[in-house]
Design a protein around this nucleic acid. Structure first.
Length: 305
DNA sequence: CTCTAGCGATACAG
DNA sequence: CCTCGTCGCTAGAG
């Protein structure tokens, strides 16, 4: 789900670009996003259960394209199995299964293009595909990290540790995690949209400027706007959240202000302050793998209290 | 007017 | 046995 509306809201920080702009640098890449796109290219084979490695070739093309432009890629794959999403998952599985059945039916009737559309909706990235990709990366001596939970947290941790200078992803969660350079929508030729956490010019006076927010303030804004860990207060979206944090400085003070606001006070749920604190901890102290220490660590240090 | 929330169409590579 | 959606549009509320 990510952060609702965040991608649109930070549009002023985005521009058209190309991977050659980060020649000489190291970049961490969201391997799952690549596999997901790659799977569309061989939806027929995957849906029929026919062994194929086309999706791996697609991903390796991206790896080699980056190398060609002097960029060193590190691939992050996540081994996550998140609790609390079982219902959504089973609904998705049911939908995928019905699309697969419909696709096979259309194929029997000779409607090849109709079948492909359905079969594309039935495919998903399996652990088996991720393992095959991982094995290929190892044999090609490309660095690959399996994150304990969320790839987003792992990638941002590696940037903060200085192991990489940018991230290639499709996920807006990179913004609250404080990554300063994010390459979105990269295609096979290296063209992409580049997000940079830099002050906006005078022409963007009314746009959201994330460079005006401290690391904690960015996270507070995203929790207020609604994230995986906490639904937003009804009527609060990304713009309102940005305004509140800019005005009051942090999440706690923003909630205090809402509690006093005549129109908003009855919309703030009981115990929202506690839920907010829990969400912030989940955000900041996720488990990630530290390559140097070779062990699991918290993304940011848990304070002793 | 701005902003949120929900919905339907759409999605790969070459 | 099996891992994450997103974009544009718009109604409707503030």
């Amino acid at each position: 789900m990510g952060i609702k509306g965040l991608r649109q809201a930070v549009a002023a920080h985005m521009r058209e670009g190309h991977v050659k702009e980060i020649a000489g640098k190291t970049v961490v890449c969201d391997g799952h996003a690549w596999l997901h796109k790659a799977a569309f290219g061989c939806a027929f084979d995957i849906a029929m259960g026919k062994p194929t490695d086309k999706y791996i070739e697609y991903c390796m093309h991206l790896v080699n394209m980056l190398k060609f432009y002097g960029v060193t890629p590190i691939i992050v794959l996540d081994g996550r199995s998140l609790p609390g999403k079982a219902r959504v998952n089973s609904e998705r599985n049911a939908r995928r299964e019905s699309q697969r059945a419909l696709g096979m039916e259309l194929l029997r009737r000779g409607d090849r293009s109709g079948a492909l559309k359905c079969l594309q909706q039935s495919i998903h990235v399996t652990a088996e595909m991720a393992h095959a990709f991982h094995a290929r990366l190892q044999s090609e001596k490309v660095t690959c990290i399996v994150s304990p939970y969320e790839a987003d947290a792992q990638m941002s941790y590696m940037v903060r540790k200085g192991m990489a200078q940018a991230v290639i992803s499709e996920d807006s969660d990179m913004v609250p995690f404080g990554v300063d350079m994010i390459l979105y929508k990269m295609d096979t030729s290296g063209s992409c949209c580049i997000f940079e956490n830099k002050p906006l010019g005078e022409g963007n006076k009314k746009s959201m400027d994330v460079s005006k927010l401290s690391g904690d303030a960015r996270i507070h804004m995203c929790i207020l706007a609604g994230c995986d860990y906490l639904q937003s207060i009804p009527g609060i979206g990304i713009q309102k959240a940005y305004g509140l944090i800019r005005e009051h400085g942090d999440g706690k003070k923003a909630i205090e202000a809402l509690r006093k606001h005549p129109k908003m006070k009855e919309k703030v749920p009981d115990g929202y302050e506690d839920a907010f604190e829990r969400a912030e901890k989940l955000f900041k102290h996720q488990w990630v793998y530290d390559m140097e220490e070779r062990k699991l660590v918290n993304m940011t240090q848990v304070p002793e209290d």
